[in-house]
Write a protein that binds this DNA or RNA. Structure first.
Lengths: 141, 141
DNA sequence: TAGGTGTACTATATGTAATAGTACACCTAT
DNA sequence: ATAGGTGTACTATTACATATAGTACACCTA
């Protein structure tokens, strides 16, 4: 099992599965997005540099840069030339198109869960359980 | 028996975006899955043949076949040699691994919706609205 | 100034996706 | 038995995405 991880300098953990059909840069994006959305990474916090993360994960710097570039264009992080990449602030205004896009995939997932035999109540509980767990995990001072 | 369960007018709706980064066979899979999960296609109903769907969508038969093959291996449809492809029955036993996999992506989506400013209540309502809409759309005899 | 940083660019190798074509076994209706 | 439709399995080719390797440059900080 090929996996790389690292915990230091502000980022908790990055796990890559080289055998997954999902592109490496997508896995990196999902990893960092998850850390931000769950509050494991706070606004303004510094991410590992392109070269550092490339070394610690044994992944090509170009691949790391592509992940960072995407994350920046999606508003999750921002880059400062010569300094590094940092966690951005959550959006202030709502983006209806983006919301609709994500909502669509969530609906599809819920439909499939119902198809697999789960009830609405079960689904609500399973989702809410982890969401509230996220809240607990955030830095509360 | 002059009237058989033919796919008159064929299948309801198959929409392909040739400019999408998502592979064509994935789009076909998602389309058919959606029709099954929403009840637009009922158990036992016949799907368009590989060659017919290839013609009506202007897509290579091999691409259609790949979509059908995947859907069969995932349990949504079943193929009968010489007769065609048909909608399978929903699973009887629960598949914990598969449920966990889908649940994971649903959670990620919900987390991102919260990040985008939606509240739990809003998300519950938006999801449940379409789910119940699906129920209304099914053939109720 | 030196070293770390983001960024851009070319080039190459690999795998997937999509197409085109052919062939065969099976089912149904005639 | 025959003809036509069906699923299925191949080969081959083209196009594109992914990942890698290497180089170069502008910027920031100590």
């Amino acid at each position: 099992m090929h996996e790389s991880n690292r915990a230091e300098g502000g980022i908790k953990i990055i796990i890559i599965d080289f055998r997954s059909p999902k592109p490496i840069y997508e896995q990196i994006k999902d990893n960092i997005k998850h850390l931000i959305l769950t509050g494991a990474l706070s606004e303004g916090e510094k991410l590992p540099s392109v070269r550092e993360l490339a070394q610690t994960t044994s992944i090509n710097p170009n691949t790391i840069q592509k992940a960072y570039r995407d994350l920046e264009s999606e508003g999750f992080i921002y880059s400062v030339l010569g300094r590094g990449n940092f966690v951005a602030a959550p959006p202030e205004k709502r983006n209806p198109e983006r919301i609709e896009s994500i909502l669509s995939s969530v609906k599809s997932g819920v439909r499939e869960l119902l198809y697999l035999g789960l009830t609405k109540q079960e689904i609500w509980e399973l989702i809410e359980k982890t969401i509230t767990a996220d809240e607990e995990g955030k830095t509360h001072g």
